[in-house]
Amino acid sequence: MSDASALLGKQIELQLIGHNLFTGVLTDLSSDMLVLFTEQRFFYFPILHVRRFNLSTDSQKNSDISPPIGFYIAEEKTDMSYRKVLMYAKGIFSEIYVTGKISLHGYIMNVFNDYFTFYSPVYKLMYISLHHLKWLTPYTQGERPYSLTHEQFPINPTSLPLYRSLEEQLKTIEGKLVVFDGGEDPKRMGLLKKSENSMVELVTAKGERIYLNLTQIQTVHVP
């Protein structure tokens, strides 16, 4: 553990790549994951997207810090890692942020080599790249998205076969309409023609053929 562990239990300022700023208590730190307690919730940040963190400049915030309360994934685990946090979070109603202007609410269902499946009341089944998740925060145990009942929002696992890599998984939806990265860019939504050799071929609404770098695809949604 680096000298940064001296900040455990203290109020810190954290900046993500992309300039998102957070302030809270540093509650856990490993080689690939950082946990911050802020606004009564625990936020899990993959180190991959952390630009910097430092002791809060507000000295008053660092005095008499009360122990965090709220739901904490793997509270009794001492071997925290990014992948293990995702595994522990399976089936827990959580908020995640990947790209765009909004976060996603739902459940992690499966974790694979380079992506995980996420089930959302709004988007249903989504594929989320492990390399692009910016943060995850679980809600209180037992809480459900939008206060929906089980009848209103049953968790229905996909009937599609699930493969270990995102490239293999995209092959199962070739010939279908897909939305990449939230659909803000019209050149990242259309008919998926082929997924091969880390490239994805897409036909847009205007009939234009677009070739996308698979490693830069952050989320996948099949409408």
Rank of each mutant, 00 (worst) to 15 (best):
Y163C: 00
P138Y: 04
L214R: 09
I12H: 02
L130A: 04
G70T: 14
R188D: 00
M87C: 11
G70H: 13
F93T: 08
L202H: 04
Q169V: 06
A4L: 06
E167F: 02
K77D: 06
F22Q: 08
L16Y: 05
F45S: 03
I96E: 01
I73S: 05
M80S: 15
I96G: 02
M109W: 08
K84A: 00
L177I: 10
F37S: 07
K61N: 10
L34E: 01
T57D: 12
H221T: 05
I217H: 00
I210A: 07
P157Q: 08
V200F: 07
F112S: 01
L192H: 10
L34Y: 06
P138R: 05
T215Y: 04
G106K: 06
E174V: 01
R188V: 05
L192K: 08
P67F: 09
Q141S: 13
L26W: 03
S31G: 13
F153Q: 03
G182F: 05
R41V: 08
N110F: 13
K90D: 09
F43A: 10
T158L: 02
S66F: 09
Y107Q: 11
F42L: 14
I12R: 00
R52A: 14
E143P: 06
T158Y: 05
E151K: 03
R164I: 07
Y97D: 13
K10D: 11
A6D: 12
Q152G: 14
L191K: 14
S159H: 09
V220L: 12
L136Q: 00
Y97V: 13
F116N: 00
N113A: 10
V111H: 00
N213W: 03
H131Y: 10
T137Y: 12
I73A: 12
V220T: 08
K134H: 09
L136E: 03
Y146P: 14
I108R: 03
T117A: 02
Y127S: 01
K193L: 06
I92Q: 05
E95W: 10
G24Q: 13
K194M: 14
F118D: 00
G24N: 15
E143S: 14
F37C: 07
H221N: 07
S30Y: 05
I73Q: 14
T57L: 14
L16P: 03
P67M: 06
M80P: 05
Q169L: 05
M1I: 07
L86I: 07
P223W: 12
L148M: 15
L14D: 04
T149H: 10
I47Q: 11
G190N: 12
F118G: 00
R41S: 15
L26Q: 01
L214V: 06
Y44L: 11
T149E: 11
L191D: 05
F180H: 08
S94H: 05
D79C: 10
P145S: 10
N197R: 10
Q60N: 09
T23R: 06
D181C: 04
H49I: 01
